[in-house]
Amino acid sequence: MSARRKVLLKVIILGDSGVGKTSLMNQYVNKKFTSQYKATIGADFLTKEVMVDDRLVTMQIWDTAGQERFQSLGVAFYRGADCCVLVYDVTNANTFKTLDSWRDEFLIQASPRDPENFPFVVIGNKIDLENRQVPARRAQNWCESKNNIPYYETSAKEAVNVDQAFQKIARDALAKENDDIYKPQVASVPDIRLDSNTKQKSGKCC
């Protein structure tokens, strides 16, 4: 595999509605923040090119609908994800409790080969607010219990720790990028080889 090969990293952001998924993405990619709340419909994505250890990497960051009602787009975009970011709001304990189900949902839908070692990152957002409900220690404990998920506390509003969190995401995703984190699409590998070989020949002689 040549070092010059272009790399696309697919990152999925999940979490309850209103925790700041869109704001985190916008702060990271566009350096913008608005306090006006706008529910995300279906899903949306932004791309950003970053350097990770001398490699140019294109990050495709998927922002998803937190509200079930707006999840009409399905989950086809989970496929091939390189990293999943779980976001909760530090001022809202309920959004922390649902992290388990977001993680499970992702693992079921994306079905990586080795769910235990799939790269997740947890972000506790809105640390600029005063009425904090979830202590950092509690979040860290949860992350440790899930095979040491890296944990960041951010403020999308004040751009605190956002770049650092996404740099970690990019680095972890890139580290796993060369491992086959997904099962092959067809059950038996020799079949694919055989098939694509004959395909190739038939293609060439017409």
Binding site: Q185, V186, I192, D195, S196, N197, K199, Q200, S202, G203
Partner: peptide
């Protein structure tokens, strides 16, 4: 050599 879905699309 190609992945099956891609090979099928070419066919």
């Amino acid at each position: 050599k190609l992945e099956m879905d891609v090979a099928n699309s070419i066919d």
